[in-house]
Amino acid sequence: MNPILVYIICFPFTAIVGMLVSWIDRKVTARLQWRVGPPLFQPLYDFVKLLGKETIIPKGSSKITFLLAPLFGLVAATFVSMLVWTAILWPEKSFGGDLIVVLYFLMIPSLAVIIGGFASRNPIASLGASREMKLMLADELPFLLAVFVAVIKAGGAIRLGQLIAYQQTHGWVFLSASGICAIIVAIITMQAKLTLVPFDIPEAETELMSGVFVEYSGPPLAIFKLTRMMMLFTLPMVVVVVFLGGMHFQGISILWSILKYVVLLVLIILIRNTNPRLRIDQAVRFLWGPVTILGVAAVVLAFLEW
């Protein structure tokens, strides 16, 4: 396969798999609550329906920012997915420092949500955006610490391809004391980055209605929803590449690769369904307290080569 082809099909592929994954999320949630749950094409119906609706731009909002914010998020999510898949398919082709680029791009969907929320000139959206900002400040540090562990283990590799190659010869980063600490931190912060329960504080339905998205309607809302679905697929993929040795597509290892992702997804869904929502101060205290300490411990362990 040609890399150019990957660049072209990356967006539709990520979008379709993202929709599938978000359907799995909703279906499993429904089954856990002893319900039947939505049909398979539900995310697609939602998306098409939103595309067909009217776009309302609130009076007094900054129009261009309001409409462009969702696009920034979508583009960033697509880029992350593209970099990760290039690294998975051709570990030697990824460029130096693409891990850092991925980490930057992973932040942009949250930034887009913040910008969009502030641009919509709605008190509820502003409140949601400020919460999202605090949450982002809280979860970035532990997430970086967790990724740092993998970098130390691989001898200072900041190329995704190098990380995958290292794990092929030396075993997964996950299979060590520091790796286990790091992946726990990564899973918790992943939940916060995806703003799923217990960290769905920015859009808490019961107190903030839909928080940052409150003024969005029609196609921009559809794009935000699509970005979230794509992130639900892409972010666990990053974790798989960094900690669980990436994916391989020869023979039986296809199943094995998919299993890694599915286990992470099921963990996310289970955490989401068995926890109440935290308050923003509790979330920040939790992420900067125990989680960061665990992250620091993981880094220290990694330096000691455990």
């Binding site: 319900r35 039947v36 939505p38 119906y45 839909s210 998205f213 409150v214 003024e215």
Partner: peptide, 10 residues
């Protein structure tokens, strides 16, 4: 939710 009906806040 079987019919895709969701309660929204806005």
């Amino acid at each position: 939710e079987r019919f895709g009906i969701v309660l929204v806040g806005s």
